[in-house]
Design a binder for these strands. Structure first.
Length: 571
RNA sequence: GGGCCUAUAAUCUAGCCUGGAUAGGGUACCCGCCUUCGGAGCGGGAUUUCGCAGGUUCGAAUCCUGCUAGGCUCACCA
C-alpha cells in the first residue's frame, strides 16, 4: 500500500527540483480549490524567482519533464501551477481492505505515524450545586470526541472527571434547602431539584444580603466536620450525582476515574508548604502563600494558600496533577475547560513548573456559548439546561420521523429519534472551531437540514439502501476504467484526504475538522448521487460504483463514530 | 487601565498557524428538479470594501503596525 499525500508528492518531486529540500517542497504543495479535480498542486512562483523564468513556463517545462509515477493519473500544468491527479485504484483498495481502520492507515502500514502515548483527559468537571447546562454539553462533546479520536489513532486515553463538590457555592444550595426545603425528597430529576435551591438562595439573597454570613457559617461547620452539615452535604451531592449519571448516559460519556475535590483539596497544601520551605514561594505580610509569577512568567501573582491556611481551588489542582500522574503515568494531561479560565491555567502550569512538575500539560480551551440574550447565568436561572435541550432535540426528531414514517413501530421511531436528535445536537456544536464562541439560539439551531448531523446520517442510509437493493457483491474485482465521471473522481479525491485530516486533528486538537470534512464528503456524494445512477443494467458499471459508494460509507462511519454519532441503516 | 481572544454577504460559518488559481459552505430569499437507486436531497440565481488605515511581498482574508468595536480575564471565588 502506498499513501498518496503531500509527503509522497514531495518525495517524488524532490528528484526533479534540486533547489529545494523535500520538506520545503512539501510545505509548498497545496490542496487546489474544490472545483478543480486535482488532489495536489505545486505552485511554481518560488521556483520562478530562482530560475528567473515565468512560473507558467516552469510549470509547463516540468509537466513535460516529469515521468508519471504509478499512483498518479496525470500531471498537468495550469498557469503557474503544476497539478496532480491521483489514481482511483490504490485509494479504493486501501479503504476496502482496511475498512474501519482506514482512518489510521499511517499507523497500520507504519509510515509517518506519531508514536502512541498515554493521555489523560479531564472533563466536564461540574459543580454539584446545579444541573449541567449547555456549556457542559459543549465540554462533554469536545472531551468525548477528542478521547475517541486519540483512541482511534492508537493512544491510550483515560477519561477522568473532577467533581467540584465543596465550597461556598455548594453551601448556598444547602442553606436554601435547610431553610425552605422542608426536608422534601426530590420530585423532579434530582440534580434539578438541587439546582432549584441554588436559584432560590440567590433570590433570597437579593431580599436579604446578610444571609451570606450564615452560608459562611455553614462552610465553617462543613470544614469542621459537623455531622449534621456533612449529612446534608452528602445527601444533596448524592442527588446531584444521580442526576448527572443520567445526563452522562444520554451523552454517552463514562470515566476511568472520578476525583472529588473534598478528598484532595487539602492535600495540595503539602506541596505548597514544601515549595515555601524551598524558597520557591513566598509569604505575604498577612501570612498567605503566594507564587510570584511576574518576572519569570509575566503573569499576575497567584495566592496558593489563604492567610488562615485553608486551601484554594489551585491548591487542589496542584495536587491533582501529581495524582493523575501517579494514577495513569501519563505522557500528556489535557484539561477541557472554557476559555474564561485561560489565565488560570497559565498560572497553574507556571506554578507546577516552579515546583519542578514539568509533565506535558495542555489546556484545551474552548469558546463560550451564549444565548441570544447574552451570557448564561445559572445563579439567575437564565441557562439552557442540558437535559432539556437533549430532550427537545429528540422530541423534534421524533416528530420528523413520525411525519415521514407514520406506520413505523413505536420502538423504532424512538430509537431513530434518539439517534437523529443527538446527531443534530452533537454535529451542531462540533462543527464550530472549538476556540470560537457561538450563540445558541434554540429556535434557529434545531434543524435537520443543511450542514447537520442528520444530513450525514442520511447519506449513510442512502448508500445502505442502494447496496441492499443491488444483487451484486462488492469486491475489488472491478473495471477501474469505469470510474471516470467528474463526480466520482471528486469523491475519490475527498476519500484520500481523510487520514491526513485525522492526523491534523490529533496534532492540533481541531476537532471541527472532522464534521467539516464529513460535510464536504457528503456534499460530494449527494452531488454524485443526483448525476450518476448506481443500480444499472450494466453489471460492470454497477459493481464499480458500488465499490465507490461502499468506500464512502466506510469513511462516513469512521468519522461519525469518532464524533459519537450513531449511523442508521434506515432513517 | 493591563493581558488574552474575536471581527468574513441579511444571517451563521470554513479558510488565517504554514501568504498564491474567481474567498468555500449552510440558513433565509428567487427559479427549476420526485413515471430513474430515499426530496432530511440536487441544480441554478442574487447578495461580500474578508472591521478600518497603513506596511511587508511578484502576490495579503491569511504576516506586521496602529486604530475601532465586542468578548473573556486581571479574587486570600470555583
Amino acid at each position: 500500500m502506498i499513501i498518496i499525500d503531500k509527503n509522497t508528492i514531495a518525495e517524488y518531486l524532490s528528484d526533479y527540483l534540486a533547489n529545494f529540500s523535500q520538506q520545503e517542497i512539501k510545505d509548498l504543495i497545496e490542496i487546489p480549490p474544490q472545483d478543480l479535480n486535482y488532489s495536489y498542486a505545486f505552485p511554481c512562483f518560488q521556483l520562478a524567482k530562482i530560475k528567473k523564468k515565468s512560473p507558467h513556463l516552469i510549470a509547463k517545462e516540468l509537466e513535460e519533464q516529469l515521468e508519471l509515477p504509478e499512483y498518479l493519473n496525470i500531471i498537468e500544468a495550469n498557469g503557474p501551477y503544476l497539478n496532480f491527479k491521483i489514481k482511483t485504484q490504490p485509494i479504493l483498495e486501501q479503504i476496502f481492505t482496511l475498512k474501519e481502520k482506514y482512518g489510521r492507515i499511517y499507523e497500520e502500514i507504519g509510515k509517518g505515524q506519531i508514536p502512541s502515548s498515554r493521555i489523560v483527559i479531564e472533563y466536564p468537571s461540574p459543580n454539584t450545586n446545579k444541573p449541567l447546562h449547555f456549556g457542559h454539553i459543549r465540554n462533554m462533546l469536545l472531551g468525548r470526541s477528542l478521547s475517541r479520536c486519540l483512541k482511534y489513532k492508537g493512544d491510550l486515553v483515560f477519561d477522568v472527571n473532577l467533581n467540584n463538590e465543596r465550597g461556598i457555592h455548594i453551601c448556598k444550595s444547602m442553606y436554601a434547602y435547610k431553610n425552605w426545603g422542608n426536608n422534601k425528597e426530590p420530585d423532579i430529576k434530582s440534580d434539578h431539584f438541587v439546582g432549584a435551591f441554588y436559584v432560590k438562595y440567590n433570590e433570597m439573597e437579593k431580599v436579604d444580603s446578610k444571609i451570606i454570613e450564615e452560608v459562611y457559617d455553614l462552610l465553617r461547620l462543613w470544614e469542621a466536620n459537623d455531622v449534621e452539615t456533612r449529612e446534608l452535604w452528602k445527601k444533596m451531592n448524592f442527588w446531584a450525582y444521580e442526576g448527572f449519571k443520567e445526563t452522562y448516559k444520554a451523552m454517552k460519556i463514562s470515566f476511568d476515574k472520578e476525583y472529588f475535590e473534598s478528598d484532595i483539596f487539602w492535600k495540595g497544601k503539602e506541596k505548597v508548604l514544601k515549595g515555601l520551605e524551598r524558597g520557591i514561594f513566598n509569604k505575604t505580610d498577612d501570612g498567605a502563600i503566594i507564587a510570584h509569577l511576574k518576572e519569570k512568567f509575566n503573569l499576575p501573582d497567584k495566592i496558593l494558600l489563604r492567610k488562615d491556611g485553608t486551601s484554594l481551588y489551585i491548591t487542589q489542582d496542584i495536587y491533582l496533577a501529581y495524582q493523575k500522574k501517579e494514577d495513569f503515568d501519563y505522557d500528556k494531561s489535557i484539561y477541557v475547560v472554557a476559555n474564561e479560565q485561560d489565565l488560570y491555567f497559565k498560572q497553574l502550569f507556571a506554578v507546577l513548573d516552579m515546583i519542578g512538575f514539568k509533565e506535558d500539560k495542555f489546556h484545551l480551551s474552548y469558546g463560550m456559548v451564549y444565548l441570544p440574550e447574552g451570557k448564561m447565568k445559572s445563579r439567575e436561572g437564565t441557562i439552557v439546561d442540558a437535559d432539556n435541550i437533549i430532550e427537545k432535540m429528540q422530541a423534534l426528531a421524533y416528530k420528523e420521523v413520525t411525519k415521514r414514517y407514520p406506520k413505523l413501530k413505536e420502538k423504532l421511531k424512538k430509537e431513530r429519534a434518539t439517534a437523529i436528535g443527538m446527531a443534530a445536537l452533537t454535529f451542531f456544536i462540533l462543527k464550530f472551531n472549538p476556540k470560537s464562541d457561538f450563540v445558541f439560539n434554540p429556535k434557529e439551531s434545531i434543524t435537520f437540514e443543511g450542514e447537520t448531523g442528520p444530513y450525514i446520517q442520511y447519506c449513510y442510509a442512502r448508500i445502505e439502501s442502494i447496496i441492499t437493493k443491488s444483487k451484486n457483491t462488492i469486491d475489488l474485482n472491478i473495471n477501474w476504467e469505469l470510474i471516470n465521471h467528474e463526480k466520482e473522481l471528486t469523491l475519490v479525491k475527498q476519500l484520500n484526504y481523510f487520514p491526513e485530516i485525522l492526523n491534523s486533528v490529533r496534532k492540533n486538537y481541531t476537532l471541527h475538522q472532522i464534521p467539516q470534512y464529513l460535510l464536504t464528503l457528503c456534499q460530494a456524494f449527494n452531488s454524485f448521487y443526483s448525476s450518476c445512477q448506481v443500480l444499472s443494467s450494466d453489471d460492470e458499471l454497477e459493481k464499480a460504483r458500488l465499490l465507490l459508494i461502499k468506500c464512502v460509507q466506510i469513511v462516513i462511519k469512521i468519522g461519525l463514530q469518532i464524533l459519537g454519532i450513531d449511523v442508521l441503516e434506515q432513517m
